[in-house]
Amino acid sequence: MDPELEAFIPFLPQLDMNDPVTSRKNFSERAAAAPPPDTSNMEVEDRTVPADLDVAVRVYRPHQAQGAIVWLHGGGGVSVTWTPSIPGPPGSRTFPERR
């Protein structure tokens, strides 16, 4: 692991993957306490990708965007704790001033 990133591990919330209901509740409370991301310069659209198990996605489209960043998370804690009702994962904070 990158030593610069390793220093942040103690600040990450501990998730009990054996109790996803409580982990999601605790994560939702932490997310609600954080200031919401500024999305005033972008359109935000929730979609569902049809599959055997439908996948909820959120699209952040900055006004006058001329490119794209696709952010896919491989699972882990986010797959247990994040839901579209929780404001702004990192996608909303990525290069908000870029066009």
Rank of each mutant, 00 (worst) to 15 (best):
Y60A: 01
L5M: 07
A31C: 14
P3T: 05
Q64W: 12
P35M: 12
A56V: 13
T83V: 07
F95C: 06
F11N: 07
M1T: 09
A33Y: 09
R93F: 02
E43G: 04
P90V: 03
T83H: 04
V78G: 00
A65V: 06
D2F: 07
N26W: 00
T48G: 00
A68T: 15
A51I: 00
D46F: 06
G67A: 15
A65S: 15
P90T: 03
L53T: 09
S28A: 15
P96N: 06
T94L: 12
V44Q: 03
Q14R: 11
S92M: 02
P89S: 11
T22N: 10
V55K: 08
I69M: 15
A51C: 02
F95M: 05
K25W: 01
A51E: 01
V80Y: 02
G75M: 06
E4C: 08
P37I: 05
G76A: 09
T83D: 03
P10A: 05
A51Q: 00
L72T: 08
P96I: 04
T83Q: 04
P36I: 13
R93D: 06
Q66Y: 08
P13E: 01
F11C: 06
P35R: 12
V21T: 09
N26G: 02
R99T: 07
A68E: 14
E6H: 10
I69E: 08
M17L: 12
P20L: 00
S28P: 07
E43A: 07
R98M: 04
R30L: 15
T83A: 08
V49I: 12
P62Y: 14
V59T: 03
E43D: 10
D52Y: 02
V78L: 11
G74N: 13
V44G: 05
T48E: 05
A31K: 14
R98Y: 11
L53P: 00
V70Q: 14
D16H: 11
Y60T: 00
N18Y: 12
A56L: 11
P89N: 04
A7R: 10
L12Y: 15
T94C: 08
D46G: 02
P62R: 12
S23A: 15
K25I: 02
D52C: 01
A33V: 07
P87W: 05
E4M: 08
V21N: 03
A32Q: 13
V55C: 07
P50C: 03
G77S: 12
G91V: 01
S79A: 10
E43F: 15
V78H: 04
P37T: 07
P36W: 12
V21F: 03
V70D: 14
A33N: 14
N41F: 15
E29D: 14
P96A: 04
P89M: 00
W71C: 05
G67W: 12
F27P: 03
V49R: 02
H73C: 09
